[in-house]
């Protein structure tokens, strides 16, 4: 049997023929990067290949680096292996990686979401023989409501807080989730304020041409009047911190797929939890597997054991690939791998 097109190593998923790694977590010579989240784009590689749209964020995060980019759909050949990027619908610029050798096709999803939002390039199914899929939310309890319904919940909460003279503070991941939430907000309610970490990512995406509403960065000299009727977008770690105390009366919330679970929602002890994820839900994962026509599915990150057993029962050839990818972080909340799930 020929060497598999991709194989797991302790540095990441490796393509021997093309001599590159996909989202490796230890330094390698050549890295193919799906998107700018820190569990996928790490420092120290010799050369980076990513999408045109993902590079600016990666550069900001990792500093000077040797990088090439491709637009979605364009192929490049490395050692007889054809490589291309395809939209993953996860965050702006995020990609799935298609790898082909002599007619055999593998697709590595990276992080992905099958339902469209108003910002990310929408996910496209890519036909393949073997699909390497994340399954952060690979249990049937995870099923997302329409984005419009969640938008109405967030705006309703914000408007009520504004009417009561309280600042609404939403904990969101700085790259992707924060900007997606911005596209859902009703600017008539009040001003959108941002934590520095959020503003930094927002400015980069805005400069790339993504349509984002006006935001104001929170700085020490921001006048009190600017807080009136405001909604603040901040990384989850900032909620309840010394930084958050400057806002006076606050109602806080989180936007994450984990908010689907009441236990997690209550443990965060926030006022509200909005179920908004940039990962595929259970129906999405299943639809994606079907749409690619893959006969072999390798699950990575998340509820891998359950999802691969489920697919095996549907007749797929299955396996589990260990990676250091982290899925949707709720920092300081117990990682699902730490939860009592067995």
């Amino acid at each position: 049997m020929a060497t598999p097109l991709l194989q797991p190593t302790d540095r990441g998923l490796w393509c021997a023929d093309g001599d590159f790694f996909i989202d490796p977590w230890r330094p390698v010579d050549r890295a193919v990067i799906t998107h700018g989240h820190s569990d996928h784009a790490r420092p120290g590689h010799g050369a980076y290949l990513t999408t045109d749209a993902a590079l600016p964020v990666i550069r900001r995060r990792l500093g000077a680096l040797q990088a090439d980019t491709l637009p979605y759909g364009r192929t490049v050949t490395m050692g007889g292996v054809t490589v291309s990027f395809h939209p993953a619908g996860h965050v702006p610029g995020s990609a799935q990686v298609r790898v082909e050798r002599g007619g055999e096709v593998w697709v590595v999803t990276g992080d992905y979401k099958t339902t469209p939002d108003r910002l990310s390039e929408p996910w496209e199914p890519v036909a393949c023989n073997t699909l390497v899929t994340e399954c952060t939310f690979g249990l049937p309890v995870f099923a997302w409501e329409d984005e419009a319904a969640i938008a109405a919940q967030i705006n309703g909460w914000w408007a009520q807080a504004a009417d009561e003279g309280r600042v609404a503070m939403l904990g969101v991941y700085a790259l992707g989730k924060a900007q997606r939430v911005m596209t859902l907000l009703d600017p008539d309610i009040g001003p959108i304020l941002t934590h520095g970490a959020v503003e930094e990512m927002t400015a980069i995406l805005r400069a790339q041409g993504y349509a984002l509403p006006a935001t104001t960065r929170v700085t020490p000299d921001l006048p009190k009047a600017a807080l009136a009727r405001a909604l603040v977008l901040a990384p989850p770690s900032a909620l309840g911190s010394a930084w958050a105390r400057r806002f006076g009366a606050v109602t806080d919330g989180y936007a994450s797929g984990w908010m689907r679970l009441r236990g997690v929602r209550r443990r965060r002890a926030a006022d509200r939890g909005f179920v908004l994820s940039d990962h595929a839900d259970w129906p999405g994962l299943n639809a994606a597997v079907r749409a690619t026509g893959a006969t072999r599915v390798l699950a990575t990150h998340g509820y891998t054991a359950a999802f691969s057993r489920w697919l095996a029962e549907q007749g797929y050839e299955t396996g589990v690939v260990a990676t250091a990818w982290e899925g949707e972080a709720l920092d300081r909340a117990p990682d699902p791998s730490d939860a009592v799930t067995e």
Binding site: L139, P140, V141, A143, G263
Partner: peptide, 29 residues
């Protein structure tokens, strides 16, 4: 009702920690 095997229900229950909630979440909307 949800069309899933019992083991998958059990895994889901373990993740939520609450029977009534698990059922509400796995049933079709």
């Amino acid at each position: 009702r949800a069309g899933i095997p019992m083991w998958l229900f059990t895994d889901s229950y373990a993740a939520t920690g609450d029977l009534a909630e698990t059922i509400a979440l796995i049933l079709p909307p």
